[in-house]
Amino acid sequence: MENGVGRESDAAMFGEEEVREISGFTRGHDYVEVTCGCTSHRYGDAVGRLRVFVSGDLEICCECSPGCPEDKLTPAAFEKHSGRETARKWKNNVWVIVDGEKVPLFKTPLLKFYNQALKGANRSHRSQNGRVCHRDEFVRCTRCNKERRFRLRNKEECRIYHDALADVNWKCDDMPYDKINCDDDEERASRRVYRSCSRSPTCRGCTSCVCFGCETCCFSDCGCQTCTDFTRNVKP
């Protein structure tokens, strides 16, 4: 533990008892940092450094191999980078070492600021029935030209869709859940019209379900125009 470094700025984040047994724990100006990892049955352990910011943001610098260029990854992206077979469950699959044992993040106090930020975001962008207002969206495969559905129920799923939409070479094989490939049939047109909008399941797009920027679907580590504008203009 770094004595005195950032102690006043992060004093309210975690008490000494909460983090006493967490391996590699250090304190920064507005964050804390710990050793983390994700285990693939095929490739073994990928190790990194997790930063937990008081804002709720989570960043991982990967150290899976000497000179690995992956920096400032989201936990979901780190999980995918590690080759974890059961992706999309980063709270279970990304671990820290507590008292010599690998412990999933969700069993530690490290996610409390992330969870608080997520709850606040969900409250600020809800429809009349209380659901988060992001309908299902589709991305077209560049190899087979079929459209694939993306569910946008939480920040993890929004990030997966966000990255797929930005990938000019996105393919069916890149889908991290609902494992599919180009040989699988595309959804019937009659099924694709149902987009899980909270107001109308067949909504063709409105400001209730098509979001142009909120805490759930924008990311501080992304350089796209939407995320950059939101981070500069909305976040404190």
Rank of each mutant, 00 (worst) to 15 (best):
E101M: 13
M1C: 04
E156C: 01
R188S: 01
F14G: 05
I97T: 15
K80I: 13
L152V: 02
D45N: 10
D221R: 15
E156S: 13
E187R: 10
P75A: 05
F113L: 11
E16G: 12
G100M: 08
K155Y: 03
E18N: 10
C133D: 06
Y194G: 06
W95T: 13
K155H: 08
V193F: 02
R192G: 01
R88A: 15
A77G: 10
Y31L: 03
C133F: 03
S190P: 01
V34S: 09
K72F: 02
V34I: 04
R20H: 15
F14M: 03
E8D: 12
R49E: 07
C211G: 13
F212M: 02
A87F: 07
E33F: 04
E187W: 03
L58M: 08
C182N: 06
W95C: 14
F138K: 10
A121I: 02
C36T: 07
A11M: 08
E21A: 06
F53Q: 13
V32W: 01
E70N: 13
G120Y: 11
E215W: 05
R188E: 01
T216N: 13
N3I: 15
C158K: 00
M13R: 05
C197I: 09
R49Y: 11
S127T: 11
R49N: 11
T39F: 12
C182S: 12
E18I: 12
R88G: 08
E16H: 05
D229M: 04
M13V: 12
T207M: 09
A117I: 04
V168F: 03
C209V: 06
A76K: 06
H81T: 09
A166T: 00
P201W: 05
V54K: 13
C172N: 01
K102G: 07
N3P: 06
R188D: 01
V98R: 11
Y43G: 01
R191G: 01
P104Q: 04
V52P: 04
A11E: 13
Y114S: 06
A166P: 00
E16Q: 11
E70G: 00
V19K: 01
C203Y: 13
F138Y: 15
F219K: 10
F138R: 10
L118S: 08
G120F: 02
C36G: 10
